[in-house]
């Protein structure tokens, strides 16, 4: 294995760890809004690391371009579906646990 393979393996395993932690968080968290934070963990660093590892394997090629497109697409769409989900839940009267801090300032 060359050093590129080692870097790629480390990145892929790290990404897998973040994905796994996100999955555990989605089970452990107490309510919908906190679970969304865990889910965004798997969507951001988890997918980015795994796709980066695959791109290192592919080198400069069409596959890397497609991997970049997949990554960009995930990064653009995941906040939009999170917002749609959170907003729909909020409008339907789903109350988050915890308190509401108002205003610019304070606790």
């Amino acid at each position: 294995m060359s050093w590129l393979d080692w870097v790629s393996a480390v990145l892929a395993t790290g990404g897998g760890l973040f994905v796994l932690v996100g999955g555990i968080g989605a089970l452990r968290m107490p309510d919908l809004y906190t679970r969304m934070h865990a889910s965004s963990l798997t969507d951001t660093l988890g997918s980015m690391l795994i796709l980066l590892a695959l791109a290192l394997q592919a080198g400069v090629s069409l596959a890397t371009l497609k991997l970049g497109a997949i990554g960009l697409f995930l990064l653009f769409t995941s906040p939009i579906s999170s917002y749609a989900l959170g907003n729909a839940a909020l409008l339907s009267g789903h109350e988050p646990v915890g308190e509401r801090l108002d205003g610019e300032g304070g606790e």
């Binding site: 294995m1 393979d5 790629s8 393996a9 892929a12 395993t13 990404g15 897998g16 760890l17 994905v19 796994l20 999955g23 795994i50 590892a53």
Partner: peptide, 11 residues
Amino acid sequence: MLTGAVVAIAV
């Protein structure tokens, strides 16, 4: 090499 990532994703 990708085994760890595949297992993590499957779990």
